[in-house]
Design a protein around this nucleic acid. Structure first.
Length: 215
DNA sequence: CCCGTGATTTAT
DNA sequence: TAAATCACGGGG
């Protein structure tokens, strides 16, 4: 067994679940990017669940299939990276069943490895909390772009998730709120599908939040 | 508050 | 074909 496998989130089954479960399960785990031989990594502290066909805010709403969102229909454990606002990349972890079109958006990391290189990637960052405290900040810090779209994180040596804990964080440590930036999504805009580690200073922003109940 | 920036989506 | 939109970030 390789060193990588020993700390990898164990199996396909870890990701082969619904996006709400995965959004909570990913909190406290580590996203790792190997870029030009340098290991860039951080603890996942904020996520959002996107629920696919019925979810007005999801790129796969109403079963929409485009060149951009194609990888959101791949099997669980793949990366869905997209480009938006003419300059930003965002990264999702695909989950659910193949062709279901559900995923978890990674919104913030607490940076743990390669901070010096992250500062080089993040021109505007002054402090550590500026490095990865937003979905497009973390992709910029970790050099995640369209070349990462469709990567299978279960087998990749360049982009993967490492297990830091075997169990989900307890519900009393998880906050939840409405998702950010989806005000157009009618009734789906208000659903509490954003999850974050309560009190963690690296989340993208404070928001009216309620404590997530234990599951 | 406003704007950059360009691919995607929607309207005509 | 044209117009509007956008799972954002930075600056005032």
């Amino acid at each position: 067994m390789s060193a990588r496998q020993s700390t990898l989130l164990p199996l396909f089954t870890t990701f082969n679940t619904d996006p709400v479960t995965l959004a909570r399960r990913l909190l406290g785990q580590r996203l790792v990017r190997i870029h030009q031989g340098v290991r860039l990594a951080g603890t996942i502290v904020e996520t959002e669940a996107y629920l696919g066909e019925p979810d007005r805010a999801a790129h796969t709403f109403n079963g929409r299939r485009t060149k951009r969102n194609a990888s959101m229909y791949l099997p669980a454990g793949h990366a869905y990276v997209y480009f938006t606002y003419g300059m930003h990349h965002c990264m999702n972890v695909v989950c659910g069943k193949k062709d279901e079109g559900v995923a978890v958006l990674l919104r913030a990391l607490e940076p743990t490895e390669g901070l010096k290189v992250m500062y080089q990637h993040r021109f505007a960052a002054k402090r550590d909390i500026d490095l990865c405290s937003g979905p497009a900040k973390l992709t910029q810090a970790l050099a995640i772009d369209l070349t990462c779209d469709g990567i299978n994180m279960l087998t990749s040596n360049d982009l993967f998730i490492e297990k830091q804990r075997s169990r989900c964080l307890p519900g009393r440590l998880i906050g939840r709120s409405a998702r950010i930036g989806v005000g157009y999504a009618h009734s789906w805009a208000k659903k509490p599908l954003r999850y974050f580690i309560l009190g963690n200073p690296y989340v993208s922003r404070a928001a009216p939040a309620v404590k997530a109940t234990a599951r």
